[in-house]
Design a protein around this nucleic acid. Structure first.
Lengths: 325, 325
DNA sequence: TTGTATGCGTTATCAG
DNA sequence: CTGATAACGCATACAA
């Protein structure tokens, strides 16, 4: 490995001088500067960023904790977060928690030990307390984990409202609401709050279906919707709190030759970009993923730079009408 | 930040001793060991991994270069690679090249500067030469980039053969082959070689469609298949070299009320796990992604440890018959 | 304009 | 069993 020392010797100067041309610091004669630059080229020298980080107490690494990169929505987030982080000179350490609390905690101390400059939590399963003693800039997505920890979210209540009212406007008389595990304190639960709010206001019949399933759990969804169709043949509208739930529902419906949207109308949440390759295109609530990711990166970097930030960051959502309503 | 020095002072020993209990080296009286451990707890001390890495010349970081994590197939790879790397004590630095040659090269030097221990290339757009001077363990996926650089692949020729013969067995008389850009020297191109091999052997009419499109490029695919259906109304079989191509084709077909598989049979390549939420389930060639990722991690770690490895690593594939044939 | 000395947090070597 | 000390590669304060 070639170090600053090698460059210095070969250029006939000291490491200080090399360091100076490297960092554009102080005054250097253009002659030595050129010489040094030339030697660096010759030796294909690149400064050791670990050593720099150690000295500067700054790694320029952001830890990104996600339950699962292979989840299409989180994969998109990872993509955009990497994109914006890279643009601003930061690297991403990828942490898949696999929704395993132990692994998430292990990663937390790992990130601390590795001196990342900050942490973006795309989601989490851990209790709030774990993060408090971390003394590290954090920003979360769709989750409040502490009084002073900033978060980025979108208007989940409005999303739920838009979806439900849309179904009612479409003439639905009995609406099923498919949601995930409501026990975790996610901001996304407001979608469900809004559903009940609207449905009661309009005195619409409704039914709640809890589906705490992994996105890849085909069998789980199959079983869930088998039961559903057996019990609720009169439902004519469905609001699902994720794109996956809507898609699995539609699939189950199509297998039963149920016409969508003629007989049942369906609204989902969060398109996955790749869904464009499948039919039908699902009416759903969109949150501005890219801007949210840009802000996540911005908020973490601002914290790193000790700049003031806003704690609550809520983006507007909108309903995109497509083929299922 | 609490350092080894703080622990030493508080425990009334020197840093050497603390380092010893930290690394279980040498003989220490159980009394001082306990004392030191206790102080470490009190201070919530975690050794600075940057400093350790600097000294040991080993970061335990693997650079993972992918064109795009949000691609479902690559997202799965990222997931498994993180999983196996984590199990073996390595961290993943996520590099999205976005199929941008400049960014890929920038990342290459960045990884070098940051002293990653090795690089896994999930794919790439760069010329071979760029990697040669890197002096860093590398392993690639589905691509040969140098005489001595190991790679992991699956039997692409066999995959192409299986797919094509399956269509023929299903009675197809004119088969379209949808492939990507063949100019890049990817091992995946063997799928196409096999297609032509089989189709000629059986004297089957065929047509080649090149689709060098981004996986999210709905419009591009729409246009492509508009042209296709205008020109080739007599095709009754399709072999696509990716799941996405097959799915977009099927979608275009369904929009035209073409019965699949009755009128046209379709075989794809590489399921995405999330496709289980959509209909129809596409007949396709499966490669053992998880094992391939495990091996990628294994090969990079073996190189890091200077252990001998096998350069060519080819996994078998199989055809999974589902609803489109 | 350039060089010397010191420290970042850690581990290893060598004494004691 | 424990402690000075040097070194990892780099950057800064202070001299010259």
């Amino acid at each position: 490995m070639t170090t600053i020392k090698d460059v210095a010797e070969r250029a006939g100067v000291t490491v200080t001088t090399v360091s100076r041309v490297l960092n554009n610091r102080g005054k250097i004669s253009s002659k030595t500067r050129e010489k040094v630059n030339q030697v660096m080229k010759e030796l294909d020298y690149h400064p050791n960023e670990m050593a720099r980080s150690l000295f500067r107490k700054k790694s320029n690494i952001i830890g990104l904790i996600l339950p699962m990169v292979s989840h299409p929505f989180l994969g998109e987030m990872a993509y955009f977060i990497e994109y914006y982080a890279y643009m601003r000179g930061y690297k991403i350490l990828l942490c898949n928690s696999q929704m395993d609390r132990d692994k998430e905690n292990e990663y937390l101390v790992l990130l601390k030990k590795n001196k990342v400059d900050g942490i973006i939590m795309g989601s989490h399963t851990t209790e709030v307390d774990e993060y408090i003693g971390l003394e590290l800039p954090i920003v979360t997505f769709d989750r409040v984990i502490g009084e002073n920890i900033p978060f980025v979210t979108s208007d989940n209540f409005e999303g739920g409202r838009l979806a439900t009212e849309h179904l009612i406007e479409c003439g639905c008389k009995k609406i099923a609401h498919i949601t995930g595990n409501l026990s975790r304190d996610l901001l996304a639960n407001k979608r469900t709050e809004a559903f009940f709010d609207v449905v009661r206001k309009h005195s619409i019949e409704h039914v709640l279906i809890q589906a705490d399933l992994n996105i890849f759990d085909l069998d789980g969804y199959t079983k869930l919707f088998n039961d559903f169709f057996a019990d609720h043949s009169d439902v004519d509208g469905v609001f699902a709190t994720s794109y996956a739930k809507a898609a699995y529902f539609i699939k189950a419906g199509l297998e039963r030759k149920i016409k969508i949207p003629e007989r049942i109308k369906v609204v989902g949440y969060d398109d996955y970009r790749i869904s464009s390759m499948f039919l039908p295109h699902i009416t759903s609530i969109r949150q501005p993923v890219e801007q949210m990711c840009e802000l996540l990166v911005d908020l973490i970097i601002s914290q790193i730079n000790k700049e003031p930030i806003q704690r609550e960051n809520c983006f507007p959502v909108n309903l995109v009408k497509r083929q299922t309503t």
